[in-house]
Nucleic acid binder design. Sequence first.
RNA 1: GUGGGUGUAGCUCAGCCGGUAGAGCACCUGGUUGUGGUCCAGGGGGUCGCGGGUUCGAAUCCCGUCACUCACCCCA
Length: 433
Amino acid sequence: MADYLPTEPYRGTRDFLPEDMSIRSQVFERLYEVIESYGYQRYDGPILEPTEIYETKSSQEIVEQQLYTLTDRGGRRLSLRPEMTPSVARMIAGNVSKLNFPVRWYSHPNCHRYERPQRGRVREHWQINVDLFGSSSSAVEVEFVELVHDMMAGLGASRDMYELRVSDRVLLNAILSEVLEIPDDMLHDAARLLDRWQKYPQETLAADAAEIGLTDKQFEKLGEVVAAGVDVLNDLSQEVRDHSMLMQVLDTGARDLITFDPLIVRGFDYYTSTVFEVFDADPANRRSLFGGGRYDNLIGMFSPQQVPGFGFGMGDVTILDFLRTHGLLPDAHSDVDAVVIATEAALFDTGRLAARRLRAAGIRTTMPLEVRKLGKEISRADRAGARVVIIVGQQDWAAEQVTVRDLVSGDQQQVTLDQVAPAVQAVLEQPAR
RNA sequence: GUGGGUGUAGCUCAGCCGGUAGAGCACCUGGUUGUGGUCCAGGGGGUCGCGGGUUCGAAUCCCGUCACUCACCCCA
């Protein structure tokens, strides 16, 4: 008894069989369309990167526990990219003198993180990454807010299905240090506490706060800040307001497109101002769908230049969950339009001629590889998703004709080889299905 | 890393007070010679996740292990 190898894909990774691939492609092609309508250009890069580019700016958790790392034959430490932002920063930094800023780029890489799979999270996911480099204007924020809404609309989502929540590291730090008078060395931990605010009961949060070193009074005030929402911003100094990109956005017409939420923190250390996350309104998907923000000095690890950036990543796992939850998943497309069936081996060559005519006309066409009963082949063609079968048989061919059958209506007609492509095209253009 | 649930045919599952495996769907063939989506008949296909234990005998009980899954931790 042989021991067979498992056919399941490696844990946390997925096979995309044609049906799954069709759905995934359709979803992402809609997104490409919207992104490109904003003038973004697509790029790509290597899946392997030097480990160092993740060690300085990504979150500690990712580097220590979630990175797939390897050492090459030359002793270089490499990692499968866990996200695209450091890679694109590297590319921008390396080409800074050639580029015409602002640069609008997007890509669709697969990213890997070693962690336990669960709803909304796997070990390999496909992520649309959209970035803009070279502008410190809050117009960038406005552009991204609009882009996000247009992308969601492109997927068929209405505004009540999701929420775009934003915050700002500048505001957050100001609130924590100016309003709550939390010392600088405790800011990071305090921000993390906010990040967890909604998931835990007050007692747990209070205990954590005490552990961090917050006083009871500070903890109490933290609660008030959360409850206050936008109003908390009134207490901030003018200097802070001037530094905050988000404050400027809140002064524009884009104000109505976002919800200020001080609980939006995000894990990456490289964010410097605006941060945002999009949430599903349906409680089935508790995790944020996607998010991003402003990073004003990510290029800094590669070059002395200062190039501000803004970007976000949108993963396929959460977005497909979202679409499934809201009944917005597209149907899988058929990959074939027509099947040419020769009823006997002697007619294969004739069938091939017909198939070539059809393909030349842009009609996706297959032919059975063995002779079977005609009924079986029609049935297979139907299941394969073909709209039309072309029957090449002795009776018709004696008069130099073949039969074109519409599998939806059942109508059929005899045509010559010259007429095959237009006849099939005419059927394909008819609505049905 | 921690905890819960689940692992039987390609898929969805039944069988689980122990006696050596079933249904529906799917698939293949046929119902004569060139017409599918309905019907009828027949057929192929299973290491019952894996390993060990108890037993005359285990899919069924016990232990271990792995995988999947949900949640936690954390995070996109």
